[in-house]
């Protein structure tokens, strides 16, 4: 029996699944940084606060001139859930997404897909993605933009988790006479 598909439309199936099983398809894999690295920084850029991203991008010392390959465009992606959490997929509802593709002077092409309709966010994220792909710029981009954003996100997530943890109901481990 063939492995179960996740219900993706046949028209999308072959190129996507082929690409998924060939890590060489990732351009960033060529010069030391793996596909996972690029995925990581793109996720950091996409989940960043747009204002903070703009401020940090402004601190970059290298030239940030770029051409728009695909100007920022807002569209929809249908978000899918799974029956029972782990079962067959179903269509839950759409999300707004803005995407943008830019090319920096040194030739690298940066791409961004960002939830929401903020075109500046998408364009800045695409620019940073392009700069990051240049091995010379990468350490500076990591230090000036990616690391501070990742730290801010971790901190926000930790605060939220700590606040949530304080509302934990723990029937069995309560110690009598604690106060």
């Amino acid at each position: 029996m063939a492995p179960p598909t996740d219900g993706r439309e046949p028209m999308h199936q072959s190129p996507q699944d082929a690409a998924r099983t060939s890590p060489g398809a990732d351009p960033a894999a060529q010069d030391g940084a793996g596909a996972d690295d690029r995925r990581r920084i793109m996720a950091t850029l996409a989940t960043a606060d747009a204002t903070r991203l703009g401020e940090l991008a402004a601190t970059l010392p290298m030239p940030t001139g770029h051409d728009l390959i695909r100007p920022a465009e807002t569209g929809l992606i249908m978000a899918r859930g799974r029956m029972g959490g782990t079962g067959s997929p179903f269509n839950l509802g759409e999300v707004t997404v803005t995407r943008c593709v830019v090319r920096v002077k040194s030739g690298e092409v940066g791409t961004a897909y960002v939830l929401g309709r903020d075109k500046t966010h998408a364009r800045t994220a695409a620019l940073i993605d392009a700069l990051w792909q240049n091995p010379v710029h990468r350490p500076v981009v990591e230090a000036c933009v990616i690391t501070p954003l990742a730290e801010a996100r971790d901190q926000a997530r930790n605060t939220l988790r700590q606040e949530t943890a304080a509302t934990r109901v723990d029937f069995f481990t309560m110690v009598r006479g604690d106060n």
Binding site: H12, P15, A19, D26, R39, I77, G85, T111, L115, G116
Partner: peptide
């Protein structure tokens, strides 16, 4: 929950951001 999307032009799956959801079993 993070929303992920397979971008055909890139050949890999991206994180687009987060949405908040309520799930009930």
């Amino acid at each position: 929950v993070e929303v992920e999307f397979f971008a055909e032009e890139l050949g890999f799956t991206l994180t687009l951001g987060e949405i908040r959801l309520t799930e009930c079993q």
